[in-house]
Amino acid sequence: MSQEQRPRRTEEVSPSAQLGSKEKDAMTLSLTALFFLGMSVSSRTQVQAENVSKPNIWAEPGSVIPLGTHVNIWCQGIQNTKVFHLHKTEKSESRHKQSLIKFGDKANFSIPHMTNKHTGEYFCHYLTKANTWSENSDTLNLVVTGSYDKPYLSAWPSPVVTSGENVTLQCHSGQNFDRFILIKEGEVKFSRNLESQSHSNKHHQALFPVGPVTLCHKWTFRCYGYYRKKPSVWSYPSDPLELLVSGATGIMNPSQIKPHCSNSSHLQDYRVENIIRLNMAGLILLVLGILLLEAYHSQTKIKRQPGLRFRGNISP
């Protein structure tokens, strides 16, 4: 047999070698997929690190502090915070910067004894572990009270008010305060600020209209005086003035207000529940009516259809 006619040997690949080749290809694909997945997660993590949240700022026990009292200013950010900074604003510029003591996702600045120099506007921000600064927090206005003599607060025409009517509260003082502020006890957000007006006997006053007065609230007020050049330095608070609300059952004192209002709130809850139940019942009846109407129309159509006729004989 000639050399050209000899059969050619084909190289056979063992099953184990084929399996190893497939495993290598699968490993290469897996590594490639893991690489791109890691790049994607890394880019997402970087974007999330840059999108830091705005910090919250508040004071404990409050932002209106008596002279000489201890107060804490808190700034809260996120967990991966490296450092917090507290800034005090003077004349619309940040003049004082203070690093805060960190406690997890928030930090604290302590003022052992509140004085006039601690008053003013504060804001804070923080630096993350990714070296990204947050935006500034909202402004916290810290006020001190007790720097001047207290003003006097009275009601005109009387502290006894009929439910639904208005009353005028007069805050006045022998000192020439530029402005007076009225605060309702138990409601932090309720405050009214008015320009001072000259009164008889060298007194200064401000007249605050209040109302309509209702039975379901406690109407206890105090007022303060301050000067325009130092808007965060207030006087001592006036003595509390409590309005007595008269209704159909006579004058109600504060101990009677809460039970009366709680009963009214319960009645209101019952009314709301009854309205919801009536609406649900009406909806159920409407659905049942629609179903019955559809059933009636379907039955009518069946009756109107002509009967089927068969032609030819039916073999047995």
Rank of each mutant, 00 (worst) to 15 (best):
E165D: 15
L140C: 05
H85A: 11
F208T: 15
N193E: 11
G186T: 06
Q98I: 12
K129S: 11
N141Q: 07
S173Y: 07
S94H: 12
E187Q: 04
K88T: 03
S200W: 13
K82N: 14
F177M: 02
F109L: 05
S134L: 05
S110V: 03
V210K: 03
Y122E: 11
S198Q: 10
F208G: 10
E90S: 02
H96G: 00
L140K: 12
S94Y: 05
S158Q: 13
E93V: 09
A155E: 11
C171K: 04
N201R: 15
K82E: 15
G174D: 11
S200Q: 11
S191M: 10
F109E: 11
W156M: 13
N108H: 04
K91E: 14
F190N: 13
K102Y: 01
I111V: 11
S134F: 01
L100G: 03
A155K: 04
E195Y: 02
Q205F: 06
K102I: 14
S163A: 11
S92M: 13
V143P: 09
P209W: 00
N201L: 02
R95D: 00
Q197T: 07
S110Q: 08
V83W: 00
L100N: 10
P212E: 06
N136P: 03
T81Q: 06
A107F: 02
E195I: 12
T128Q: 08
Q205R: 10
A155C: 07
H118I: 04
K150I: 00
L182C: 05
T145D: 01
C171D: 14
I181V: 14
Y122H: 14
K102T: 14
T145G: 04
L100C: 05
S196R: 03
Y152M: 03
R179Y: 04
P151M: 05
T145Y: 01
Y126P: 10
Y148D: 05
S110I: 04
H203Q: 15
S154M: 06
H96Q: 09
V167M: 10
I111W: 01
I111F: 00
K106H: 13
T115E: 06
A107K: 08
A130I: 00
R179V: 03
P112V: 00
F123H: 12
F190Y: 14
S163K: 06
L194M: 07
F180G: 14
V160P: 07
K189R: 11
I111T: 05
T89P: 01
G104W: 01
N176S: 14
V144N: 01
R179Q: 13
K184P: 14
K117Q: 13
F190P: 12
K82W: 08
Q175P: 04
K97C: 02
V161I: 09
D178G: 09
T132L: 03
G211Y: 05
Y126G: 10
W156C: 10
Y126A: 08
E185Y: 10
F109K: 04
H113Q: 11
E93A: 08
F123R: 12
T81Y: 00
S173E: 13
V167S: 12
T168R: 12
L86Q: 09
I181G: 05
V213S: 07
K88C: 01
G146N: 05
Q205H: 10
